[in-house]
Amino acid sequence: MSREQRPNPRLNEDLLFNEAPGGPPRYSPLTHKPVQYLTVSDRDGQVIGYVWANDEDDAAGWEVRKAGGDEAFNKGARWARKLHDAKARGVAPTTALAEMIQESDPTKSSHVVPGSLTEAPNLGFVEGLANQ
C-alpha cells in the first residue's frame, strides 16, 4: 500500500514582510528641487564622483562617476559614510557639504575639488554628470 505524500500547506502560503522600525537615520535619496553639489577627485585629479544635498527635502547622496570604474566606486564609500555620519549627528545636508569642504585633504585617496561647490537645477543634472 502506498501513501501519497501531500505538500505541506504552509509551503504554499504567501510570505508577509513587515518593515521593522529603526535602523540608522538616512537622508532622503531623492529630491526634485535644486541641489548643491561637490566634485570629488582622486590624488591624480581624476573625478570619481559627486556629493549632493538639498536641505528643503532633507536629501543628500553620493553619485559615483561611472567612468571611474571599481576604484571610484570603492573610494566613494568614504563619502557616503560621511553623509551617514552627518545625518546621525542631526546635521543639515548642505552643512554636511560644508564640513566636507573644510575637512578635505588632498593627501587622502580622494578629496573635494577646491572651489567645486555648485548649484544644479535638480538631482538629474548631477546624475547626468556622473553618467558621462
Rank of each mutant, 00 (worst) to 15 (best):
W62N: 01
F73Q: 07
A98C: 08
R10A: 00
L38T: 10
P34Y: 04
K82H: 12
K66E: 14
T94G: 15
S116N: 15
E4S: 02
A88N: 01
F17H: 12
V51S: 10
D42L: 04
P9H: 00
L16Q: 07
G45C: 11
R26K: 14
D57N: 09
A60C: 07
W62E: 05
G128P: 11
A80G: 13
S104C: 04
G69Y: 12
D58E: 07
N74V: 13
E119Y: 06
A77P: 04
G124M: 13
P93K: 09
M100S: 12
P7N: 00
K108P: 01
S109P: 12
K33Y: 15
D44F: 09
D44V: 01
A88E: 08
N12W: 02
P9E: 02
E127H: 15
A96Q: 08
S109W: 11
N131E: 14
E4C: 02
Y37G: 08
Q46P: 01
W62H: 06
F125Y: 09
R89Q: 08
Q36Y: 15
S41T: 05
E13I: 01
E56W: 04
A120R: 13
A88R: 03
P34R: 09
E4R: 03
P21K: 11
F125L: 01
Q46H: 08
L97M: 13
A92C: 06
G68R: 04
N122K: 15
T39R: 13
R65D: 06
E119L: 14
N54M: 08
P9A: 00
L30Y: 05
S104Y: 03
F17P: 00
K108M: 05
D85E: 10
L117C: 06
